[in-house]
Amino acid sequence: MCKDCGCSITTNKHQHEHTHVDEQGREYNHVHDHEHDEGKNVHESGHHHHDHDDSHKHQEAHAHLHDNPQLNDAKTIAVITKILDKNDHEARHNRAHFDEHGVLCINLMSSPGSGKTTLLEHMADLAPFKFGVVEGDLETSRDADRLHVKGIQAHQIQTGSACHLDAFMVHKALHHMDMEAMDVCFVENVGNLVCPASYDVGSHLNIVLVSIPEGNDKIEKYPVMFRQADLVLITKTDLLPYFDYDIEHEKIMARKLKPNVDILELNIKEEASIMRVIEWIEFKRKMRG
């Protein structure tokens, strides 16, 4: 484990992929090494920003590189950078952690009460893979407690007023988890269909849940969230007789936002439907080698 951030990379150097953006706002990736030596990368607990020193230099160099000669009257500088670049950098760092341990990370997002924790509880008895959960909630550790009862490794993050998890919070939580004891790490995000969509937490895949009682228009109303989905889970289908909910319409809407998105229906009282979700995850896991 490297002392500074607790990541399991034993050598001093490790690689980070960076996304840079040119004047037109197009992205390109490149990989650079960065050193992990003490004092340089300060990691304070309880503090979300533990920035890698060299990424700052990098940014400066980057800004310099893109100085626009026309605007460069020593007053205006062009600094085309993603506003959330620090979060994105940390997210890539988290993903590197997961990759090293051969752990598939899945971000679960939905509005409050769509059935995220219930699904995790039920998967405990059925899944062929071992999993852990990073739980995000504004208050209480009720969800983590529910999972502990089922023997699931879980760490609760209480975000206080933050309406989403970011990559720094997830990184901190990972320090409390045994990656060796899991094949899949779920991040149960704060119940919210807006804010979590803007933050990469370092997951490989996103599952977005939407339940029948929420009504027929959620996918159209929250396109940014559903655009992020690799799998849309339409949950609580046992309640279909009580609501006017047009599932086929919702599927069309989801695929307008993301033509290749997978969609499954889930009724927690029907084991076969839980098994389909598990099979989807197993398949994705196998496809990553």
Binding site: G25, K75, I77, A78, I80, T81, K82, L84, S198
Partner: peptide
């Protein structure tokens, strides 16, 4: 066609700064 590549519109960028 639905075989499309997103070029712009899904991100937030800091573009430029004027400073003294």
């Amino acid at each position: 066609s639905i075989d499309v590549k997103v070029i712009d519109g899904e991100e937030m960028f800091l573009m430029s700064l004027e400073m003294v």
